[in-house]
Design a binder for these strands. Structure first.
Length: 459
RNA sequence: UCCCCAGUAGCUCAGUCGGCAGAGCAAUUGGCUGUUAACCAAUGGGUCCGCGGUUCAAAUCCGUGCUGGGGAGCCA
């Protein structure tokens, strides 16, 4: 007989004579002649209550099951006479798959996120993390569904790359050279390395995606991305997933339309498909989350230029630790003020000064600013960073010269501007930051199954 | 990398002025009840993060290291 997922059972509308469930004991309430257990199999947040009477032949064994133990239960699905649940399973046979000994670290009590991080291999067995990772899974599906329906092609850009996506951050080196040999020679000879040149883990698939957008029209890449920055914050990990759409014949304004539509669609999808899991977060994790989700779905995101943002900040009369100055990047406190206090909703900032943005962003007519866009959201800050790309060969080459970038390395990138160049745009969205936004989880390490951060690569 | 805070039982945490190491939950044993983080009783459980110092005496004070957290920078 095939096991039934608890999610299916709890959604049934009539009793069943024979059901088989398999899962883990979350809690047990023990009596003299019978006991109640709540079983969870990960298919949903809710447990199913099982009642076992002492007429079961291995009853004394069943009494020894502890929180975390794995059981296989055959019995009847009946309407529960007790309060608190519609259905319960009247056990007829219980097979003990395995017992969790008394040093099982998870209790039926609340644990701190910090403690659970130290047992990242067990934390998906808790309500909160089970819910978070089901939502993560559903979001991955929603992203592919969204793009499939829009006619985008999914592109797998390289994980190992020879090019540095210009200032996106510190990179992890990929090499097959032996460390002992390298230290003997005193330096790395890349000619003898696997690729015959320096190689790194990707910090962005953008440049590759641009090539494909100029062939397939609309594309997106969605995969792991690596940053070797020594960042110790609740918003940074060394390995994360980034979604990067890239669209031909698309300007900055359409780029923003797309980003807004994306976030609304993904939020709506989770609200529809993950109602139960999401309710855990609106009730226990962030009381203001329901309002935030409503804002994401129903409000029009604000759009202002960098210059307008500077103006707002200067006129705000708010005391900031760092002074506001045209020409420098905004500090965290400034971004938070704009998204959390001033607009109280996501806000697109566009047209940044050229000197604080990378070479590939399109020069505006003023010659000072570029067609960049960041989306700032409350609590998290930057969730999207993108631009309209510089499609004019002359402008692009001039910019690369100003920034002392070697044109020969980028020959293929420049080629795309020589042959049938068109206006095009795209952005990168931090996937984990999106999960934080939608669940109210405040630390990025808690939305990644096994987070990688400076000094930490356990599990 | 910088600034701030923390580390005591399996977990959450208390521990006053430096003077015998504590509670709740979990575990174990027993009791009881269609129970709902069940309840009641008893029992077991400690490298007080490591190292060094001050002191008759250190979980407590000082130094240092490690680990974790919050914030900053960098960014998605």
């Amino acid at each position: 007989m095939k096991r039934k997922k608890i999610k299916k059972l709890l959604n049934l509308t009539s009793p069943e004579d024979k059901v088989l469930i398999k899962g883990w004991v979350r809690t047990k309430r023990d009596s003299k002649d019978f006991l109640f257990m709540e079983i969870n199999d990960g298919s949903c947040l809710a447990n199913i209550q099982v009642i076992a009477n002492n007429n079961l032949e291995n009853y004394s064994e069943i009494q020894k099951t502890t929180t975390g133990s794995a059981l296989s239960i055959f019995g009847k699905l009946i309407e529960s006479p007790g309060k608190g649940q519609k259905w319960e399973v009247q056990a007829e046979e219980i097979e003990i798959v395995s017992i969790a000994p008394d040093n099982y670290p998870l209790q039926k009590k609340r644990h701190s996120d910090e403690f659970l991080r130290t047992i990242a291999h067990l934390r998906p067995r808790t309500n909160k993390y089970g819910a978070a990772f089901r939502i993560r899974s559903e979001l991955i599906y929603a992203i592919h569904k969204f793009y499939n329906e829009l006619g985008f092609q999914c592109l797998s850009t390289p994980i190992i790359t020879g090019s540095d996506c210009e200032g996106a951050g510190e990179m992890f080196r990929v090499t097959s050279l032996e460390p002992e040999e390298v230290s003997k020679q005193g330096e790395m000879d890349f000619n003898t390395d696997f690729f015959g040149q320096e190689a790194n883990l990707t910090v962005s698939g953008q440049l590759s995606a641009e090539m494909f957008a100029l062939a397939l029209g609309d594309v997106y890449t969605f995969g792991p991305t690596f940053r070797a920055e020594n960042s110790n914050t609740s918003r940074h990990v060394a390995e994360f997933w980034m979604l990067e759409p890239e669209m031909a014949f698309c300007d900055l304004s359409q780029n923003m339309d797309h980003g807004e539509e994306l976030i609304k669609a993904l939020t709506r999808h989770v609200m529809e498909k993950c109602e139960e899991d999401l309710s855990l977060f609106t009730k226990f994790v962030d009381k203001s989350l329901a309002g935030m989700l409503d804002t994401l779905v129903n409000s029009k995101f604000a759009r202002i230029t960098y210059t307008e943002a500077i103006d707002i900040l200067l006129k705000s009369n708010k005391k900031f630790e760092f002074k506001i100055e045209y020409g420098t990047d905004l500090q965290s406190e400034h971004e938070r003020f704009l998204a959390e206090e001033y607009f109280k909703k996501p806000v697109f900032l566009t047209d940044y000064p050229k000197n604080i943005k990378p070479f590939y962003m399109r020069m505006n007519d003023d010659g000072k600013t570029v067609a960049a866009v960041d989306l700032l959201v409350p609590r998290i800050g930057e969730i999207i960073g993108g631009s309209q790309r510089e499609e004019r060969l002359g402008f692009l080459e001039k910019r690369m010269e100003e920034m002392n970038l070697p044109k020969d390395i980028y020959w293929w990138y420049l080629d795309s501007r020589k042959f049938g160049s068109v206006p095009h745009s795209g952005f990168g969205m931090g996937f984990e930051r999106l999960i934080m936004l939608i669940t109210g989880i405040t630390n990025i390490r808690d939305v990644v199954p096994f987070p990688r951060t400076p000094g930490s690569i356990d599990f």
